[in-house]
Each structure stands twice: as structure tokens, then as C-alpha cells.
Design a protein around this nucleic acid. Sequence first.
DNA 1: CACAACAATATTGTATACAGTTTTGTGCTG
DNA 2: CAGCACAAAACTGTATACAATATTGTTGTG
Lengths: 235, 235
Amino acid sequence: MNEGRQVMETIASKGWTSDMVVVDLERAIHEHRLPPGTKLGEDDLSDAYGISRTIVRAALLALSHRHLVELRRNRGAFVAQPSVREAREVFEARALLEPRTAHSAALRMTDKGLAILQANIRDEHAALDAGENGRALFLSGQFHVEIARIADQSTIEAFISQLISRSSLIIALYWRRRAALCETQAHHALLDAFARKDGDAAEQLMKSHLLDLVTSLDLRNVAEPPTSLRDALKR
Amino acid sequence: MNEGRQVMETIASKGWTSDMVVVDLERAIHEHRLPPGTKLGEDDLSDAYGISRTIVRAALLALSHRHLVELRRNRGAFVAQPSVREAREVFEARALLEPRTAHSAALRMTDKGLAILQANIRDEHAALDAGENGRALFLSGQFHVEIARIADQSTIEAFISQLISRSSLIIALYWRRRAALCETQAHHALLDAFARKDGDAAEQLMKSHLLDLVTSLDLRNVAEPPTSLRDALKR
DNA sequence: CACAACAATATTGTATACAGTTTTGTGCTG
DNA sequence: CAGCACAAAACTGTATACAATATTGTTGTG
């Protein structure tokens, strides 16, 4: 019972470094706990993490370089709101990178890699069953990052990781399909191809999967997200 | 004559913002005026640009996110020294992104785009004739970035731009071929394909061009660049 | 009462002071 | 004089103070 005292350690008492804050915020954004457009005030964050604004600013700068946060001069930091244009571009880039990376991953697949991907799918199911949709979405993205990791291409992995995070923002803004089943089905099919070390199949499946993702978005140029409430209500 | 007073404005008297410093340093690195391994002391830079260390640190942080600068804790910032492994990965990523981007660019090519590429080649020749090898190398890289810009894919352009800069570091470390002619020949051939709006040809030419670039490097695992002089001479 | 000018408040931008770490320099000891 | 311990200097890491800017609130006038 006396051991319990340490448990209530608040978020502010950990030794937060800039990089840790980046990871923490990125995950919160990825899980839709911080929706697009959310203001990220420097004082709010420095209070929350128990650090000075210096570290917060470094973290926000890093996130802006990943296009997850938009910095408006003298106005502050906001969770990014990708435009329809940007959404298309992100999936265009993914279409160039991911299928061939999946191909490489299939050829280099190991038992350990398979286990990681299997565990990922399992965890995602568990999260969905528990109603933790944000966590499920995060894990769903991680599946793609793990593939790049297995392909042993850290440079490409970094690009894909960024694109996955941005995709999460895009999904928050433009998702229309309700059924979440298609997602895990596609991942299962990929897993099978990986298990067979079938590079061509993995490449094709990934290509279809990405195409399927794009078509599940509503990217008609209708609802361009307003930069500010003021601009949105101008006329 | 009295107008001349303003001309001797030193580098330190411009209103340097963090982003401007990033661009300036990136270009210096790209042009090999700052070779890999060069220490970028915060005081040195803040003196040179006439700004506080705050801005310098923001710039160095940005450059480290682009893998052009390596930050070592409590030790400072250094122009990055890509490993052989990283070099391979960078060209692997370029091979995934650039050929199909060239394809898109060819299909969307305009007179204006052609003019930009022509001017680029012309300027590169001029730089080579003037013995400004650094500037020529920079322009040679810009050629690839312009293609992505013409393809109208700013997300992919950002990735390619980063990869080009990193390639410049790789060239500084691993270049072995002396003849610089092959370079401009390849760009000329690409220009022809673009002028014909021949997407397939452009894609193929770009693929060959990148392959040619890689083979002009010495990427045997021999000369792993030492992290520091100290480490290099340890035994 | 609507609206504009102005004041107050809040928030970000930048510089700087200080703390912590690494590196360099010096002198002592064997 | 080589080698080690310790001291000094240089440099980076972090917090904070202050300046600049934007936002919000208030008051006075038409």
C-alpha cells in the first residue's frame, strides 16, 4: 500500500527532454486526442510537462518540420490541418514509397519480423474491442512503419513514419467510411504474403491497400478547412 | 561614390531569421564550403550572423532534422558525415521517388518549366567554366528539385530536396570519378525527354542517371568516416 | 446602441544569465 | 619526463527576463 505513493506521479515530474515531448505529442496527435486545429500554447505545454518554454519550443519546431504542427508567427502553434491538396500529395508519396518497400520487406522477412507484425494486428484488434479507437488507429499506422523497419531502410522509414502521422491528421479531417474492418483485412492479407516471402504479392497488396485508403476519404475540394474562424465567417 | 557606403554591409547586419540562416548554411554545406565534420559552434555562428544563440540553435535543430547536421549532446553541432549505409539508403530512396516524379513532370511540362531547366543547365556550365565547382554541384542538385517542383508535388519535392542535400555530403565523402561531363550529359538527355513530354523516357533516363551516380561513388565499407579525430586514432 | 479608438491583457519572439558538461591547460608525483 | 589529478576555460543546456505583437476588453462618441 505504501508503494502506491509513487504511482500518482504527475506528468510534470518526469525528466522530459525535447525529444520525449515530441514523441508524446506526436502520439497524442496520431491518436486524435489532439484534433487538427488544436492550439498548443507554449505556457500550457510548459506547465503540463513541468519544463520551460525553451524545451517546448524546440519540440514544436520539430513537429512543425514533420508537418504535424503549423506555426503562425506571433500567433502560436496549432495541430496541422492538411489541405485536400496536401492529403492527395501525402498518399501520392506513400504510393511511391510503400509498395516497393513492402516488396523488400517480404524478401528480408524473418520470424521475428513476422511476430512483430502479428502482435501489431493482435493489439489493434484488442484496442478496437476495448473501444480505444485512437490507439487502434495508431497501431494501424505502426504496421506500415514496422514494414519499413523490416525492410531495413531507416531513411525511407523516416519518410514513411512522417507520412503515416500526417495520414492520421488527414483521416481525422476527411474520413467518411465507417467500417473499420477493411483495414485489418488488408493487413492480414499482407501478413500472409510476408509469411510466404512473396515480394510481388506484398507489393501489389500494399498498392491496393493504399488505393483503398484514399478512396475511403472524401477529398472533393468542398470543405477546405478554414485557417481561422474569422476567415471562415467572412462572408 | 557616396552610394557605396551601404555596399560594405557585413553579413552580420542583415535581419537574419532562423529560416534564413538554415537556407544559408544549407547552401554552404551543399556547395562544400562547409565540409562534412566541420564544427558549427554556436558562438561562432551567432557572431557571424549577428544574432543570439537562440536563433542559431533553432537553425541547427532544423538542419539536424534534415540530417545535414549532427548534434552531439554537450559537444556541439557538426556538419553530418553520412555513413556508407546511409549513403546507400539515400540513393535507394531517390530511386523510389525520382524516376516516377520525372515521369509526372514530363507529362505536366510547360514552356516555363523547360526554360527553368534550360537556365539551370546553362548556369551549371557557366559555374564549371568559372571554376566554381561548389556552385556547379549545387545547381546540379537543383535540377532534380526543379523537376519535382514541375511535377507539382510539394510533399515529394521536400523529400527529394532533403535527399539531394544529403547526396551532396555523400559526394563530398565518397566521390571517386573525376570526369564531370557525364553529369551534364544526363541532364541534357532528360531535358530532351521533357521537351518531348515523353514520360516513359524521362523515367528511364532518371533511373539510369541515379544508377550512374551511385556507381560513381566508392561505397565499399572501407573508409567508415571517423566520428572524431580522437576515435580515429585510438589504436 | 453600434462602432471606433484606445487601454489592458495575454502570448509569442529574442536575448541573456546561469548551470552543467566537456575539453583544455597546469603542476605535482613517481 | 611520462602520467595522473586537479584546476581553468570554453562551450552547450536550460530557464527566465524583457521586448514585440496580437488579442481582448473598455470607454467614449456619433
